[in-house]
Design a protein around this nucleic acid. Structure first.
Length: 482
RNA sequence: GGGGCUGUAGUGUAGCUUGGUCUAGCAUUGGGCGUUUGGGACGCUUAGACCCCAGUUCAAAUCUGGGCAGCCCCA
């Protein structure tokens, strides 16, 4: 049994697998539902998702991407049009077969992803190079009937995401979208979620079903397992040829569009919880927190009025600086109880004010990430909290960056790679990149390839692959994965 | 894909080996009343559970089988 503190929370580093669901439970983030693998996103987690969605959506729109909405249900005939795509998704598709008591003539897939239903429309919409580029995104839910153990947020049968589906007249234009989209995702992860990642190209084996290549952001969880975050797929003309998305180019010739797809999902909530949470519970990065600061007044009968008045003043002064504040003036809970509750829920900053502070014209300000507490002048408090919130973000990011840096081990053989995985680390190795090599590697190590960063250490002349006899092509990250 | 472990109120658990004393204990949580309130206050009161389906038996939370769900390890 792992150690528990007085609130029944497992110590994170001793048993992450117990700690994780406990935090979700205690911070009131999610609940299990009657459908296995489908969770309820309770207000506390949904608020985080709304924030992620809001900031990401803004960035999409800033580069000219428009939102639309396509149907949930996809006719079987459409889903089957692209061979690799259907092969990749078929085992996990949930089907609608009946309407009331009558059997449908053609069964309908609940979208596992929307390429097929969207491209059916695209083929009708795109006629000429004047219709391009077409850059459409949708925020929706998808269902993939996973058979592996579901884990709240990280792996489930239904999740929320964005799926961007774009079409360009030329390969060059299409591929140029890659860095732009990956840049947006990376900005969101760094600037809002306070999370660095490994960015790079996926292997042939692990790329998206139907894509030419996939670029991903990989995150490393505290238990040493990696997990794929947002990604970008360059689809070439695979789908456009299957769906007949053709157009007349500038030369008057028939041509097929070049396509990309890209996504970020509610899985990031899980990564966020895992990455920043601690033995006191959840830690929400300030820019994602729906409540950035909570004021806990210390109420006694004789001074109650004055303390509450000051607390309200503080609230106003913070709000003027654009900080979202909650004044917790509930009288049926003790201050200590509230401290613990807000820490559990991950609110970045807590302000305590009582009669003793009133005398000194100050308030106690505690930061969630380090638990440091300091007395601040009432007049300076709004500015100081503003600075503090930025500092908390920076500290969370730096800590996460350090963890990431420390878990990457350079290796050049299977034995050292396996040792790295055993130590809960990521192996970085020269590799040939072939599918057979990865199959054997996976069987022997229990791990898989993650991605290959664009900026690479130099390969030695004649460097062999770390796991077979072929020549190494690039450095690649490998790890045990969710 | 293979193996192992587990399922008891909202949450965490006791009981299961050796069926009966279980009208299922404890803590926390929820409701009510009062006293409290500077790091999860206290008293009184009230509500709330044996995952589902079969079987064995006079008798099942407890044993058996199946299902469902959760966790772990290996591939």
């Amino acid at each position: 049994m792992a150690k528990k503190d007085q609130k029944g929370l497992t110590v994170k580093k001793e048993d992450f697998n117990e700690w994780y669901p406990q935090v979700i439970q205690k911070a009131d983030l999610a609940d299990y539902s009657s459908v296995s693998g489908c969770i309820v996103y309770k207000p506390n987690s949904y608020a985080i998702w709304e924030k992620i969605k809001e900031v990401t959506d803004k960035k999409f729109k800033a580069v000219g991407i428009k939102n639309a909405y396509f149907p949930l249900l996809i006719p079987e005939s459409l889903l089957q049009k692209e061979a690799n795509h259907i092969e990749g998704f078929a085992p996990e598709v949930a089907w609608v077969t009946h309407a009331g008591n009558s059997k449908l003539a053609e069964r309908l897939a609940i979208r596992p992803t929307s390429e097929t239903i969207m491209y059916d429309s695209y083929s009708k919409w795109i006629r000429s190079y004047n219709d391009l580029p077409l850059r459409i995104n949708q925020w929706n839910n998808v269902v993939r009937w996973e058979f592996k153990h579901p884990t709240p947020f990280l792996r489930g049968r239904e999740f929320l995401w964005n799926e961007g589906h774009t079409c360009f007249a030329t390969k060059k234009e299409a591929e140029a979208e890659g860095p732009e989209i990956i840049g947006i995702y990376d900005d969101v992860c760094k600037d809002y979620l306070a999370m660095p990642s490994l960015i790079g190209r996926k292997s042939e084996k692990e790329k998206f079903a139907g894509a030419e290549y996939t670029t991903s952001l990989e995150f490393i969880m505290p238990n040493g397992k990696s997990i794929q975050g947002p990604d970008f797929h360059f689809d070439g003309q695979n789908f456009s040829k299957a769906f007949e998305i053709s157009f007349t180019n500038e030369k008057g010739e028939k041509d097929y569009v070049w396509q990309n797809t890209w996504a970020i999902s509610t899985r990031m909530i899980g990564v966020l919880i895992a990455m920043h949470g601690d033995d006191k519970g959840l830690v929400i990065p300030p820019k994602l927190a729906i409540t950035q600061a909570v004021i806990v007044p210390i109420l006694f009968e004789d001074s109650k009025k004055d303390v509450l008045k000051k607390a309200k003043d503080i609230k106003k002064s913070l709000e003027k600086k654009g900080i979202s504040v909650y004044l917790d003036d509930r009288e049926n809970y003790s201050p200590g109880w509230k401290f613990n509750e807000w820490e559990m829920k991950g609110v970045p900053v807590r302000i305590e004010i009582g009669p003793r502070d009133l005398e000194k014209h100050q308030a106690m300000v505690a930061r969630r990430d380090t638990s440091e507490k300091q007395a601040l002048e009432l007049t300076a408090i709004a500015d100081e909290v503003r600075i503090l919130l930025d500092d908390i973000h920076k500290n969370l990011f730096d800590k996460a960056q350090k963890v990431l840096d420390n878990c990457i081990v350079k290796v050049d053989n299977l034995k050292d790679a396996k040792k790295a995985f055993k130590d809960k680390k990521i192996a970085f190795a020269p590799w040939c990149g072939s599918v057979p090599c990865e199959d054997i590697f996976k069987e022997k190590s229990g791990a898989k390839s993650l991605n290959s960063p664009e900026e690479q250490p130099k390969l030695k002349k004649g460097q062999k692959c770390s796991f077979c006899k072929e020549e190494a092509k690039y450095w690649f990250h490998f790890g045990k994965s969710y």
